[in-house]
Amino acid sequence: MSQQLKIVIDGKEISAGPGQTIMEAADAAGIYIPRLCFHEGLPPGGHCRLCTVKVNGRPVSACTFPVAEGQVIENASEEMTALRRKIVEMLFCEGNHYCPSCEASGNCELQAMAYRLGLLNPQLPYLRKPRELDASHKDIYVDRNRCILCGRCVRASKLLDGKTVFGFEGRGINKRVAVDAERSLNETPFSVTDQAAKICPTGCLTLKRKGWAIPVGQRAFDKGPIGADIERK
């Protein structure tokens, strides 16, 4: 085993392995760095930027940045939390998120992140742009109203399922998740058993006929905030 390194996150010294990213090292040490587009088992996407930390004063994304001896890292400071909260606010205003009527409520990472970071009512203007819903597949909806463009389904379908069912399309504010078909999801080999079907952090990819299956009180984030699993380690 190669030599361990020492890094400091928010004043706490932890050890890290060479070749690890800052996020991997922090996770292993039970320090949670907020994230939405990252998912265990997939390469980082670098989309949401919530995991941005300051390394020796310079902002970098923890999901991609490698550890190095002696790094002094700022993670859960008031400043970083405010910056992250602002990004979550942007995501809420960019899409159309109706939490009270959404079947992902309570299991939604975006919603849980808003709670964790203390987002109250958004100050930014809502875009209120209509987004396309694809209900063509027999088992699953793609409701782009709730998509935050984390790209987890894109990576999972390509790398875990070997199918490349999803991709991106367009640029800037018009960027959206596209399917590998002329028109809609039912033309693809997508299956409800795919890894990509289980990986959406919000309610964008939702199972049909399964809404509100988990009673309130037992949903993923009813018992503890997002990140609690890492902090319990």
Binding site: G46, H47, C48, R49, K86, I87, M90, L91, C93, E94, L124, P125, L127, I148, L149, F168, G170, R171, G172, I173, N174, K175
Partner: peptide
């Protein structure tokens, strides 16, 4: 910048558009 943002990351993609509105 709104027009030319590549859309990959949230702060630039959503942020520039929202800022323009404000």
């Amino acid at each position: 910048f709104v027009e030319e943002s590549c859309g990959w990351c949230a702060p630039c993609r959503a942020g520039t558009t929202l800022m323009c509105k404000m």
